[in-house]
Amino acid sequence: MGQVFETHNVAAHDQVLKAVDLSVSFQSGNSNAVAVDHVSFGVARGEMLALVGESGCGKSTAALALLGLLRSPPARVEGRILLAGRSILGLPPADLQQIRGKSIAMIFQQPMTSLNPVLTIERQLTESTMAHESITRSEAISRARDALELVGISSPETRLRQYPHQLSGGMRQRVMIAMAMACRPSVLVADEPTTALDVTMQAQILSLIKGLKRDFGVATILITHDLGVVAENADRVAVMYAGRIVEQAGTSELFRAPAHPYTRGLIAAVPRLDGVPIGSAQTRRLQEIPGSVPQAGPSVPGCPFAPRCPLASDRCRSMRPMEVAIAPEHLVSCWEYAA
């Protein structure tokens, strides 16, 4: 399976970060598990791309690969990763270190485990700026204070002296974002940044990230499983299933006219507040997608969704569907749409 799929994205040339034909596999013993299977996507300045999918679909692995954070072996990363037109896949660790934090920053789901519990917030915030730029300690501290203000933390002076465990979950996530933004990166990768938070806090954090995107033009990749979060925040969406991107489109286009059976099923399966049959006794039923989420394994020859797909034919099971554009910037990998 060495086919190359070119993106038909018209805005592709503006993209700050671009993955072309990216694959990640994990070799363990005699088994080879393909986590990311020839995916191409990119994100432009001031744009938020959502990578959406269920657990094990490869969305987080793809993000880690972008940042060169996968240990190899066991991971094997293939394809091309372009940062501002420059290929960064396979760069020496020292160069990648320089790129991470300075050009690409990442925030994680569990802010507690990503913060060092024995260092004050000040130390953690100044460390990366001082490592990446030649500035004095006092400059770094005043930068840290600004960074905390930027992410909406009141009384930054007090917070700087505190340790991570003294902060609430939402506050920690703000600190993580402050750290990520410290060097004004051009790309921000947010991996399930609000999954561990309550809805009211989630709304606050997401509006913060959206604000950064708008004010600083940060190209943002939002990794999530929550379609509601996608709909309310992302500009474009790439839907992943079993390591592949099955559909890519502008957010409003994707929700208005979902094309891939998986995307359609996913959108229909989400209980929604504005849904019609609320509380109407026993007639309520959610649309379900039969079957279960596939485990990572060797790459399948056909469409990975075929076993759960209501439209699957023999062709779907044996041949990998091509990525076709069914509308401007709307790409689908499904035989239903093949010419």
Partner: peptide, 24 residues
């Protein structure tokens, strides 16, 4: 506030002006 903060998978839905709920 809880209802306003719950994301709805419909990007074209007119945004209801959410009550500003502060803090945690």
């Amino acid at each position: 506030a809880l209802i306003a903060a719950s994301p709805i998978p419909d990007p074209d839905r007119p945004r209801t002006q959410a009550l500003p709920i502060k803090g945690e």
